[in-house]
Amino acid sequence: MLLFDNIAKAAKDFFVEETSPDGPSVAAPRSLPGQPTPTFSGGSTSAAFQAAPLLTQPEQRHLDHIRQLLSGDGKDFMAFTKMVTSLQASGLSGPILYQTAFNAFAAVTSLELPALLKSAEQFELKLTSDRNSILERHREKVGEIRIPNVPPSPLVQLQQQEQQLQTGLADLARQLEEAQQRLLAVRQELQQQQQKATAALASYELAHAAAAAELKAHQQAVQAFLLK
């Protein structure tokens, strides 16, 4: 009787979703038996970006996106997984869990196993297609690819500004190096001209002193010999 009570409870949970004043409740993802809890790394695919901290819990907006992506008509594989989750919460596990869930689900929906597996493949394709689209958008967002007719993302615009500033700094550094070289050349020429000017003055002083001494000597000789 306990098994039938569990099946009845699972069927009730399958058709009736709990609600709250803020709207439908969203259950946290639960791993299947023996399946590890996934972790997500926020690292960028570009080597230019530093890896983000390791994530162990996705953002609510991503959970909502995936939940919307996997929403169905109540007669598909995702509805079946809800039945499995309900029975698992009641204590069932292993083959008996899935066999019981399938029997109850088939009784309610008249869905056969091949159609159920086909539905699972369709949801898997939806997940794969959605992830490919997200990855393409991410690569465009970080500047790895360009999508025609799509304006650059804010991140790409910042990258462009960074590159322009780096180019400007490199140009300023080159100009500074050239100015330093010119300054060195001017200083060398200035030193040479100062040395030439000092040498010229010293040469003049020597010539002037010699001429003055000779003039003085002749003047004294005239005064001594001719003024008697």
Rank of each mutant, 00 (worst) to 15 (best):
M1P: 11
D5H: 12
D5R: 13
N6M: 14
I7A: 04
I7N: 01
A8N: 15
A8T: 10
K9G: 06
K9D: 13
A11P: 00
K12G: 05
E17F: 07
T19L: 12
D22E: 15
D22I: 06
G23D: 06
P24N: 05
S25M: 14
R30D: 09
P33A: 03
F40A: 03
F40Y: 15
S41E: 13
G42F: 05
T45H: 12
A47S: 11
A47V: 10
Q50T: 11
L54I: 09
L54K: 13
L54C: 02
Q57H: 11
R61G: 06
L63V: 15
D64Y: 05
D64L: 15
I66H: 04
L70T: 08
L70F: 14
G72L: 06
G74Y: 10
M78S: 05
M83C: 11
M83K: 07
S86V: 04
L87P: 08
L92I: 03
G94A: 08
P95V: 03
I96C: 03
Y98E: 07
Q99M: 11
F102N: 04
N103L: 12
N103H: 08
F105H: 01
P114Q: 02
A115R: 09
L116W: 01
L116R: 00
A120S: 13
A120T: 01
E121C: 01
E121W: 02
F123D: 02
E124D: 12
L125I: 04
L127T: 08
T128I: 14
S129M: 04
R131G: 00
N132R: 13
I134P: 00
L135V: 15
V142A: 01
I145P: 07
R146E: 15
I147C: 04
P148L: 05
N149D: 15
S153H: 06
P154I: 05
P154S: 06
V156N: 06
L158H: 11
Q160A: 12
Q161C: 02
E162S: 10
Q163M: 09
G168S: 13
A170R: 12
A170C: 01
A173I: 02
R174N: 14
E177K: 13
E177A: 13
Q181C: 01
L184F: 04
L184N: 11
A185K: 12
V186R: 12
R187H: 12
Q188D: 13
Q188M: 06
L190K: 10
Q192N: 09
Q192V: 10
Q194I: 03
Q194W: 02
A197Y: 06
T198V: 06
T198L: 08
T198C: 01
S203P: 00
L206V: 14
H208L: 06
A211Q: 14
E214S: 13
K216P: 00
Q220G: 00
Q223Y: 10
Q223G: 14
Q223W: 10
L226P: 02
